[in-house]
Design a protein around this nucleic acid. Sequence first.
DNA 1: AGCAAGACTGTGTTCGTGCACAAAAGTGCA
DNA 2: TGCACTTTTGTGCACGAACACAGTCTTGCT
Lengths: 362, 362
Amino acid sequence: MSAVITEVKGMAKQIKIKEIAQLAGVSAGTVDRVLHNRGNVSREKTEAVEKVLAQVGYKFNLHTSAVSLTKSYRFLFITPQALRGSYWDALKDGVNQALDEYSDIHIEILHREYDQFDNTSCQACFGAALSEAVDGVIIGPTFQNETLAYCRELTRRRIPYIFVDARIEGAKEVITFCTDQISCGRMAARLALWNCRKGEKTAIVHSGRKNQRRSTNSIVREQGILSYFRQSGMEGSLLHTTLPSGENFSSEMETFFREHHEVRSVIVLNSLGYQVTKVIRRSGRKDIRLIGFDLTEQNRRCLEDGGIAALLCQRPQSQGFYAVRTLISLLLYGKPDPNQTGLIPIDLVFKENLPYYREVIL
Amino acid sequence: MSAVITEVKGMAKQIKIKEIAQLAGVSAGTVDRVLHNRGNVSREKTEAVEKVLAQVGYKFNLHTSAVSLTKSYRFLFITPQALRGSYWDALKDGVNQALDEYSDIHIEILHREYDQFDNTSCQACFGAALSEAVDGVIIGPTFQNETLAYCRELTRRRIPYIFVDARIEGAKEVITFCTDQISCGRMAARLALWNCRKGEKTAIVHSGRKNQRRSTNSIVREQGILSYFRQSGMEGSLLHTTLPSGENFSSEMETFFREHHEVRSVIVLNSLGYQVTKVIRRSGRKDIRLIGFDLTEQNRRCLEDGGIAALLCQRPQSQGFYAVRTLISLLLYGKPDPNQTGLIPIDLVFKENLPYYREVIL
DNA sequence: AGCAAGACTGTGTTCGTGCACAAAAGTGCA
DNA sequence: TGCACTTTTGTGCACGAACACAGTCTTGCT
């Protein structure tokens, strides 16, 4: 019989502002001023407080702060159109969840949507956004130039902003909440090559919007796929095809699947996997595994009925939730939470673990 | 150019106890008594308050409550030995994280560990636990009878308890935080059969503790695997082998892998996948994909070096976190959060998304 | 020196909730 | 009815952080 091992875990007795004040030989008010760097504190006392602070490790608590908070905040939340059940809709759910969690803080969020396939719409949206007096902005970016112009103006006005889903090179955002799309691509590739035989091929489906740059995410995902295939010495087994824009049925693609019997895996680079399942079904092929991205309502159904074998997801709810939380924390304490990396886990969803993704779990 | 769609999201103005009191024609103290069912309120006023409550949808705020809370709570946390980097250690991390998050509430947690392979140790542990005066208990159960006896006593003493990782039939726990092991098994099976050819086989590795019942979880996982294989008409492609107890190297299993060339996938039913990688390596086989469970430190390393192809994980940190949170919420408000289902998502981890599981994300 | 402007610092009030205590109302019994 | 007792109800303070305000101390200028 082995011994009963025991251990006591107590709370790390949270230090109070009053105690800090006492240790530093100042009043609570001064500590408060230092903590929020509101200024008007002599160098001497600032240093005294900061010295104590460094030793005791004071922890901010959003909720306790909120009890006494009188100020109210206004955020802008700018994304492509968030259709019911879409990726952006899920992100919005996360934003609302944060609003709920921090309902003791007075926050108002204005949601502004633009057409992600029309840069003039985006431009107009950002233009209108500039006339709003807000304390912070959350941006789901698409168009590089338009977004950058807007961000520059925000920087000039000292309004903090956060990217979700993807970042724009050159911007000075507080943080970006997104997943590493290279890893996403590599995971998709691993699934495509899982137990793969010589001669079997993998098809990559691109989005085929006319006159439209492909989204950065889909480009990077493809790079990830490519790097994994190259590393596995299977570079030659990749094929490419294109999904036409809109809901138009692609007879071209149907022919593609009919003719390429050696294709056993299909990776759809965007969230339109559910459209490809229809094509595959029409082609009569039953030996193809479809790997898609994003847990939209349509994709969810396809996962359930078997049309899609696996989905790679980037927890849009978490992105929205953390974005709001970070903005609050930043505005209340003047500095972003240093623990935050901005990297959001990648979820691999099969039919079996799908049910857990019904309710939002952060 | 399409229109810019806009929408305003504001906070849902939280109702205060004072307002409720006013609406019900009573004092704030009475509302407080009703909310926490402390008794000593006339039927008449109770009904008046509850009527208002039902209309306005009052929401508890853990943190504001905590500000004024003077009471302190004591929880017991009873698990198998939580070796560094083990599954139980991860669960403990989640408990500590909750302690951290709710550091404004006075909570003390006593961790008691027993030897999961020695029921007398478990019995002794529960025996000692009964002499502790505590407000709630979190149990990671292993032995059915011993646990049930302890739980009966807890029920008698009206001390709430919560299971993590697995539940014990017949107990009256507040809630159990665990994943559906059937689905876990089915996911493992899906991976094993992913792109599988006729003639290829899958080996299931059982734990081989002497004189020891297998853990409920591993039994249920096997049922899940079996059901998936049966459904796919591949029942015949399953083989079984056993891992000896302790760290002893299994030459028997090495021979198994050498002889069964048709085995292409291996599912290790418990968290000891990393031990099996050594055997496979010794056997010289390089065409086998190992599917394991639980993101322990050792398994993590094997995932990185490729010895393990995929791990199925059950977010032990979340389990620990939610267990503590539920206990707090229960003790403060007298009733568990009805939103909680207790089901924890299943994570499928490859080498590519492993980095995100370094830091605990709830 | 006298004085005002500004920098600095401490005190006191506020928020919503929990809880102790006091006040009020009801109950039973001689 | 009067008295002791219990049950019910209201009031007031504490909690910890934010912030307004008032008081104190510099500093520069006439």
